[in-house]
Write a protein that binds this DNA or RNA. Structure first.
Lengths: 187, 187
DNA sequence: CTTGACAAAGATAGAACTATCTTTTATGAT
DNA sequence: ATCATAAAAGATAGTTCTATCTTTGTCAAG
């Protein structure tokens, strides 16, 4: 029996990502992807159920990168002071964004095309469990002011993203100051 | 001679906007728009040069709403203290977003579909002249910290948008606090 | 060296769409 | 009432695309 070339699946994903980055997610078609890889169009369906499946796989791949980067364990480590954990959270997001700005673009684009797109691209990953409870804990302890969590998230991501896209980034300290002074509890 | 029904142009724009809000900008087609209005597809081309022209007109229409809302004159009125003008700017953006959340969605969607989409939807209008110089003036006067202007804009818009989309808004005071304490110069 | 299995390419049905061209219909002016 | 004009509808050429089905090619096991 003949074996399937697993590197080809990756090549297809890469081509898809390249098209999205250059022309936007709406421009993706199996024809263009296949042409870019140098295979026939029907061949794409050997590796992906359909176009949505392909897009979702690219989406998941970028998400996995994000998760692999940050050390989520420390964020929920109760032995670390909460202010320090908040800082850790922001640092890990900031570092990732600066290192992988295309990841954010890809996630944003795909989410925009496929879904009701929520507010921001990273919502899924760091959000849903760890970060929300971190923020809620900080509010309960009166370390940060009581604001809807999604406002804080939106703020963090927007600033990170803007900075990552800038030709020269402002640096983590400015970023941190911007966020922290906005959310910290005033005494 | 038979006269053109100008209300029909508006109806076409309305139908387009409705489709965008419900299914996203990528879902817009002259067929669907015409069906929604109850006219023939070719009829759309009597009022708009092509599909892009239609989308751009919807985009411009929403932009005009925003401009019509805020009183931009006061923002550049040098007799008003700069901190007060910064507050006015944020208030006008906040009020508009709360009153017209769909406007933001429409602009975001259309911009996303048509262009390289920059960072945020409102960039064009309040931005380009008045607001940028307001922020730069505030930085020069050391009223706010020296940060890239687009970071501040991104932050403002992201928070405003998130709040406007929330079922219950946090209110202007919380919004203002969040932004102001982030950007103000520390003494 | 043959053959089964599966990858790869080819071909194609069918849908959705854009933009233009043609025909019909309605209306305001004479 | 007639007629010119332009709106409205209809028809259509041509493109792009998805997803499936068919054919061809290739590799590995026996």
């Amino acid at each position: 029996m003949r074996k399937k070339d697993e590197t080809k699946k990756v090549k297809i994903q890469d081509a898809t990502a390249a098209i999205i980055l250059k022309y936007g997610a709406a421009a993706v078609s199996t024809i263009k992807v296949a042409k870019k890889v140098g295979i026939s169009q029907s061949n794409v369906y050997l590796y992906f159920k359909n176009k949505d499946d392909l897009l979702m796989s690219v989406y998941q791949r970028e998400l996995a990168k994000i998760i692999a980067t940050g050390d989520l364990t420390r964020i929920s480590d109760a032995t670390i002071p909460i202010t320090e954990r908040l800082r850790l959270y922001m640092k890990s997001i900031y570092d990732f964004a600066l290192k992988n700005p295309e990841s954010l673009t890809l996630i944003e684009q795909i989410k925009f095309l496929m879904g009701q797109s929520e507010t921001n691209p990273l919502a899924d990953q760091l959000n849903n469990n760890v970060v929300v409870s971190l923020l809620e804990e900080a509010m309960a302890a009166n370390v940060i002011r009581s604001i809807p969590v999604n406002l804080v998230m939106a703020m963090v991501f927007a600033v990170v993203r803007a900075d990552a896209m800038n030709p020269q980034s402002a640096g983590f300290d400015d970023f941190y100051h911007l966020i922290w002074n906005g959310i910290r509890a005033t005494d």
